[in-house]
Simulated scan of single mutants.
Amino acid sequence: MDFSQKLAETIALLERIAAEYSPATFANSFGAEDMVITHLLAKQQIAVSIFSLDTGRLPSETYTLMQKVAEQYPSHPITVYFPQTAAVEQYVNSNGINAFYNSVELRKSCCHIRKIEPLQRALQGKKAWITGLRREQSPTRTDLAQQEFDAGNGLEKFNPLLEWTEKEVWAFIRDNQIPYNALHDQHVPSIGCAPCTRPIAMGEDVRAGRWWWENPENKECGLHVKDNAVSLLK
């Protein structure tokens, strides 16, 4: 499939989501893929809301981009969700500010507080949510479908860029002058919380800089683990 056909199918899918699954929402974490979807929603005037999760530990470059996106795409304002203050306080006071380095369990507990619980609030009342996941990003994402029912959150989940390549993502960003996170220019292809993100070396997997102290099969925060409402810390 050539890229023009792939792009047309992506736009058609986004339009179908808006028509058949309203209210639908898009989870924007300000990575390269998410900027592509944000641009398409705004340019095509597709009626899908956008939200983002501010964990309280994001890099400054992400906040800079967040402001830039608000200015460039005023038709699609981004609603920001924060973690519950009491839960963060209890975690930090009981375990330490950077306890997530100590075990997979503590890292996933931190992700649950800062990401999963806010996500559940963001998805309340929605019929579908959209992500920027791509199949080639990670070993944990090779079996994803473009559309699947998210049983944990009780709604449809769509991955419109699932078959896009990294090269296609960046060509589209450059051709359309789409703003992107400055960390990408510092060899950081996958961006999350600041203490859990680092640059990668030439030839490393694109997700190698996320939770680099863990094994590849553990490198998900829980947002995209199936049935996460049943097993939040899976």
Rank of each mutant, 00 (worst) to 15 (best):
D150L: 06
A27N: 00
Q147L: 13
R207Y: 07
E20D: 04
Q45P: 11
I46Y: 00
A122M: 04
Y101F: 06
R207S: 09
A24F: 01
L40I: 00
V69P: 12
S4P: 15
A19I: 07
F30S: 02
Q90P: 14
L161Q: 04
E105L: 11
Q90W: 15
S75L: 13
C193K: 10
L7D: 08
R174F: 14
F100A: 06
E204N: 05
P139D: 01
P74K: 01
T142M: 09
M1W: 15
K157V: 06
R135D: 04
A122V: 03
I50M: 08
A229G: 14
A42H: 10
L162G: 07
V48T: 05
Q67C: 14
Y21G: 02
C196M: 03
Q186H: 13
S4E: 12
F51Y: 02
C111N: 02
I113S: 12
K219E: 12
M202Q: 14
N95Q: 07
L183F: 08
I113A: 12
I11N: 00
K6P: 10
A47E: 02
A99L: 03
I11A: 01
V36W: 04
A42M: 04
F51M: 01
D54G: 01
K115C: 09
G203F: 07
K68W: 13
S75V: 14
F26E: 02
F51Q: 00
F3C: 08
K157M: 12
D227N: 15
A87T: 08
N95L: 02
V206N: 02
K108D: 03
E33Y: 10
C110N: 08
L40D: 02
I37D: 01
N28K: 01
A201R: 13
D175L: 10
A12Q: 13
T55C: 00
A128K: 02
Q84D: 11
L13P: 07
S109G: 15
E220L: 13
P83M: 08
A47N: 09
K68M: 13
Q67E: 12
Q146W: 14
T79D: 08
D143N: 13
H187A: 12
A201M: 08
F26R: 03
P179T: 05
R107I: 01
S138H: 06
H112R: 13
L162Y: 04
L183Q: 07
L223T: 14
K108T: 04
L41V: 01
F26T: 08
L161H: 05
I11F: 03
P59L: 00
P74F: 00
K157T: 10
Q44C: 04
A145F: 12
T25M: 07
W164N: 00
S138A: 06
T197L: 00
E163Y: 15
F3P: 09
C221W: 13
L65K: 08
A42K: 06
L106C: 05
Q177Y: 13
E214Q: 11
R57M: 07
H76D: 02
L162T: 06
S103A: 03
L65P: 10
Q137N: 02
Y73M: 05
L123K: 06
T131H: 11
A18P: 05
L223Q: 13
S103I: 05
P199T: 00
E168Q: 10
E204L: 06
D150A: 09
L133C: 09
R57I: 11
G125E: 00
D34F: 15
Q186L: 09
V69G: 09
I97A: 14
L183M: 05
R198H: 04
F149P: 00
D2G: 14
